[in-house]
């Protein structure tokens, strides 16, 4: 079902940017030449989404159209195009699983399945307690650490397995701190699993310190 057709929730009656958000809005608009302020539509949608529980109500799109002096439909076009924007309410933790080929080859299917089983919901659904929403998205651009999940459009958790992803869910629910990035443990950021190999000897002999090594 497309964003445009979801209708089983209530839209707020109004939307205004908070003074803090408005400061950001003004800063973004100032980046563009006069008359081209419509270019600021994507950052503004993002600011609105962050301000409003991680989703964008219709009134916010209308407000953005008004601020940027562009037709409402043009804001709507952008907002419906990107999976980054939520046009319906989502859980406190919006988990977007990459299911594109590299992640899929590395086991994103199993990771998603583990989550679905653990939470008792399917992709595209929200848990009854409003804690989690699971969605599948296309490539998140972190193929080197596949499979990957993105939380609330900001934080990446990488190298998922059915086991560590469940741990991630439990920690998020408990409000515990959970490290971003690779969940592998042995791996530093995107470096090789078996440690640094390429030009390693040369770097050592030149006395260059290698990140992640003692």
């Amino acid at each position: 079902m497309s964003h445009a057709q979801k209708r089983d929730f209530e839209q707020p009656a109004s939307f205004t940017f908070t003074p803090e958000s408005m400061k950001e809005v003004d800063a973004v608009i100032a980046k563009y030449p006069k008359g081209y302020q419509a270019s600021a539509v994507m950052p503004l949608l993002w600011i609105a989404q962050r301000q409003h529980d991680n989703w964008i109500p219709e009134k916010a799109m209308e407000e953005i159209a008004r601020i940027l002096d562009m037709p409402k439909i043009k804001v709507f076009e952008v907002a419906t195009f990107y999976t980054m924007y939520n046009l319906a309410p989502v859980g406190k933790h919006h988990l977007q699983f990459c299911t594109t080929t590299p992640c899929w080859l590395r086991g994103s299917g199993e990771a998603v399945e583990a989550c679905e089983k653990h939470l008792g919901i399917k992709l595209g659904e929200t848990t009854p307690d409003g804690e989690f929403t699971l969605t599948d998205v296309e490539c998140l651009g972190a193929c080197v650490n596949a499979p990957v999940v993105q939380r609330n459009g900001d934080e990446f958790y990488e190298d998922l397995t059915p086991e560590n992803v469940v741990q991630l869910l439990d920690d998020l629910k408990a409000g515990k701190k959970h490290p971003h990035g690779s969940q592998d443990g042995a791996r530093h950021k995107s470096s090789g699993v078996e440690g640094a190999t390429c030009l390693h000897e040369q770097a050592k002999s030149a006395g260059i310190k290698i990140a992640g090594e003692k």
Partner: peptide, 19 residues
């Protein structure tokens, strides 16, 4: 009348109006 637009993307793309 800038009322029609292209909503969604890929498989879900459709022509529509604002809500």
């Amino acid at each position: 009348v800038e009322e029609m637009g292209v909503i969604g993307r890929g498989e879900h793309l459709e022509i529509g109006t604002y809500i």
